[in-house]
């Protein structure tokens, strides 16, 4: 069964050998997982979020397990785009698997500079734009919570990286996710990925302290799957560009549920922590899982949810 998929964008398509990608921040730069599976078997690798300059991240504790999930407040620690381009990217099998650079910045201008730098890299197949971050120039309002800001970032990245497929990653922490999806589509996004983590909190009753040094963190894992499915469903109905779904996907059946709700592809995030071969195994099992559910091809399944 052919499970390859093409994300047909407004400017650039992104061809994937299968619809299973790894989610940013849960798979390092890919190489960290090379002992647990063949990276080339994946549909794509979305690398840890990159910023223009190296970033130290938040104090520890940065992660805490919660029921069926985890909270993280890593604070986007990374070595910066230059080290990525020079040292990490060449180590990835980018000719065989789509490498997608997740980018993060504190201003529209910085987003553009970062995008331009990565546009020059042959090994980068697409950019995933993390808009769930504060705009320092606009008193810290999150780009992804304001349709105008989300559109401005998308436009800036689209212009700065004219040769790349631009995927915009949406936050679920908004009143109307379809509104933001519309805004980034109109601004030139080729595809949308959702969801980023759900804002959450955990406390230590005995110590009367927050479980994370940052107090607040992003919830991920199976606990957020219903929220993610809802968002994918709402976004897929609202826009014409492809949607990549993520949030609590740990097995092939989960992935197929997201495709049923309208996703073209999926990303595996916290699942990579449950077992480091999770994404590899999921990609391998997808054809068998399709057979089990009588699915003859993924396109026929996509957005075929019966509402009657």
């Amino acid at each position: 069964m052919d499970i390859s998929v093409t994300l047909r964008g407004q400017t650039h398509d992104l061809a994937l050998k299968n619809p299973v990608l790894t989610a940013s921040g849960t798979f390092g730069n890919g190489i960290e997982f090379a002992s647990y599976g063949n990276l080339s078997r994946l549909g794509g690798i979305v690398v840890k979020g990159l910023s223009l300059k190296p970033k130290a991240g938040n104090p520890c504790p940065r992660i805490v397990e919660t029921t069926a999930g985890m909270l993280n407040a890593i604070g986007l620690q990374n070595d910066g785009v230059e080290i990525f381009c020079r040292e990490k990217l060449p180590a990835l099998p980018w000719r065989d698997v789509a490498v997608i650079a997740n980018i993060y910045a504190a201003s529209t201008a910085e987003f553009a500079e970062l995008a331009a730098r990565l546009d020059a890299e042959q090994g980068v197949a697409a950019l995933e734009v993390n808009i769930s971050c504060p705009n320092i120039a606009r008193s810290g309002v999150l780009f992804g919570q304001d349709p105008a800001q989300a559109a401005a970032v998308t436009r800036a990245v689209r212009t700065a990286a004219p040769t790349k497929h631009i995927m915009v990653k949406l936050s679920p922490n908004v009143t109307d996710i379809a509104l933001i999806a519309h805004a980034v589509e109109d601004a030139g996004a080729d595809s949308i990925s959702c969801i980023n983590t759900v804002l959450g909190m955990a406390v230590d009753l005995g110590a009367r302290k927050p479980a994370l040094a940052n107090v607040l963190g992003g919830l991920s894992g199976p606990a957020v799957k219903p929220v993610a499915l809802r968002c994918v469903w709402q976004v897929a109905r609202a826009v014409g560009i492809p949607v990549v779904g993520m949030g609590g996907i740990v097995c092939a059946q989960d992935a197929l549920e997201f495709i049923l709700a309208g996703a073209y592809a999926v990303q595996v995030g916290t699942g990579n922590f449950i077992r480091p071969d999770c994404a590899f195994a999921l990609a391998d099992e997808l054809p068998d899982a399709c057979n089990r559910f009588g699915i003859t091809d993924l396109e026929e399944l996509r957005a075929s949810l019966r509402l009657d």
Binding site: G25, T26, F27, G28, E32, F33, S35, K48, G57, C60, P61, R62, I63, M70, N72, I74, Q77, T270, N272, F273, P276
Partner: peptide, 10 residues
């Protein structure tokens, strides 16, 4: 830590 492999940065 979540991963043990240098990916989660926890």
């Amino acid at each position: 830590m979540a991963c043990g492999t240098g990916a989660c940065l926890g």
